[in-house]
Design a binder for these strands. Sequence first.
DNA 1: AAAGCTACAGTAAACCTTTACCCAAAATGT
DNA 2: ACATTTTGGGTAAAGGTTTACTGTAGCTTT
Lengths: 347, 347
Amino acid sequence: MDIHAVAKLAHVSIATVSRTINHIPTVNPKMAKRVWEAIRELNYFPNTQARALVSGRSRLLGLIVSEITNPFFPELIQGFEDVAVENGYEILIGSTNYEPERMQRCIRRMVERNAEGVAVMTFGIEQPLLDQLADRKVPLVFVDVAPNKPGMSVLKVDYHHGIRQGVQHLAALGHRSIAFVAGPERLHSAQSRLAAFTKALEECGIPVEEKLIVAGDHTVEGGMAAAEKLMSQKEMPTAIMCSNDMLAIGVLHQLSRSGLRVPDDVSVIGFDDIHMAAIMIPPLTSIQMSRADLALGAVSALRGHLEGLPKREHKIDTRLVVRESTGFPRGTMAHLRGRKASAGSAE
Amino acid sequence: MDIHAVAKLAHVSIATVSRTINHIPTVNPKMAKRVWEAIRELNYFPNTQARALVSGRSRLLGLIVSEITNPFFPELIQGFEDVAVENGYEILIGSTNYEPERMQRCIRRMVERNAEGVAVMTFGIEQPLLDQLADRKVPLVFVDVAPNKPGMSVLKVDYHHGIRQGVQHLAALGHRSIAFVAGPERLHSAQSRLAAFTKALEECGIPVEEKLIVAGDHTVEGGMAAAEKLMSQKEMPTAIMCSNDMLAIGVLHQLSRSGLRVPDDVSVIGFDDIHMAAIMIPPLTSIQMSRADLALGAVSALRGHLEGLPKREHKIDTRLVVRESTGFPRGTMAHLRGRKASAGSAE
DNA sequence: AAAGCTACAGTAAACCTTTACCCAAAATGT
DNA sequence: ACATTTTGGGTAAAGGTTTACTGTAGCTTT
């Protein structure tokens, strides 16, 4: 069943049916009504491929993420799906698993399907691969950093604000020895988080100690290894901030295994505030980066390009969410123990 | 740039180019080589919508899940994506959030995009909505239960095997008082899990006690509430099995809050074996249902339909994965205590 | 009342590919 | 050497929609 069937039933031409469907205002309301009735009666759906073919608009948006099993991303996908569907778009999802070769294939898939825009939310991009997308004039949106070319936007995450809140929170509680479990070096976002951390330390007048900055890889296992490393040092820090929540969960895990209590012995802060953070034991204090904002920003940036708007920078905020994994440093203020949830606010 | 450009450069007709791309064996290898070179030189990609339009095959597969933020689903999506892409398909994802109205829209989206098949992995379906898909003759695959119509397959999960292993595991440790936190009544899969549990109890000669079966809703919060309820009963069970891992995590959480240790005071078993299960404190013993199997089964069932094979039932296995949340019942074998690190115990 | 608009429906071309059909040349058979 | 089959490339139609262009009422203007 096609547009001709509808036209026949409504006693109009196919052009009128098409115009009605596309809400073109020059259609006489009477005819439009007839057309809609026919559509409804026949249970007609326009053929998307034909529409896309002739109009050149696929109404498809690509979304490339690092790994779908890191809970940060599904929450992002959810937001992206909602926003995209609301705007009449469908989304194509690709996950790279940090493999350049997979990234390559993802890009190819997006191009083949004629995605009208692609959001690359992998927090780290391989330059050469992008050229393929750029060549095709597909609007792109990145996180943190993007090539300065036309058609490319960037979602600038304000890591510093949230991280400073975290450091201030710890400093207010009395911590002076704060470790940082960093993310992979190749990830731009991880570098930014680390930089924001050292800057925040300085702002709070806490000296940066090299030994308290350990490498991680944004996985639970990495967090466990990092915690192990920190514990083996002469002077164990009283608080640990992590480059993402997965690391923080690993840290929590390893501390618990070693018989250390959180937050009584060590305070822990994560980053991202994934849903899982709230359901850890103890619930994890974390720095929130809104997936909804990210999704909204990405879609609107892409749509902006499609409508010919110039490249835009979208700002994404971060903020501290205090839960139960942070408290006073060990050996101090013991009489206040147990009240830590209400002690020390972000500001 | 289109197929004509390639044809021109390779000095052949567009038909030859098309045949080459589609690997039709009747094209002369010499010409094929010329064509491939031209394709490569021009960096040509076939237009998917045009192909889909004329061939009637969109090479799109739909995947409808309940909620993308429940970690079970992303793992499923990952598997689905891998298998689909491997077979030259792209996937369209829709999440229903358990809202019939969203389900409706998902179905519509799939139909509009001409999905060649749809996997409905929501573990509970609304009959009337399906008719839309059935009417369109779109092959469908479901989990657990499906209407007995042509073009519909079902992935039968063998809940009983894994759950029996779980019950046997607990029984072998000496548990006789085993509670079950069930899932939502409307979910067929939840009902099957409960039924498998009571059957397994009987097989182990343990009487089924009504009071030890409490309702949950497959969320962490539901698990917390259920644990609360169980703890308030006169006789607290020594082990708790849960209809899914989210519930189990909630139970773990609530037990910990109440100062009960797992597994020293209570043993806990989850279901699904999501990735998060292994990183809980303590690591959660769970019953695994392979997402990879599910994904593979779904895609192959769908492909089967497309190739005209009759409706098929695909069996999905479940099996127990023992971690550290299960141990001897409290008050027994005390001499063996201490073999497991008890998380967060502050004597 | 004639001329010129306006408003809006219809016709047909275009989008890019696949594929049925045709046809030429090469290969085979006699 | 001629007839017949095989091989494989070319031509053109088809697929369902959008949209530029055409055409025709019914108005407005003078």
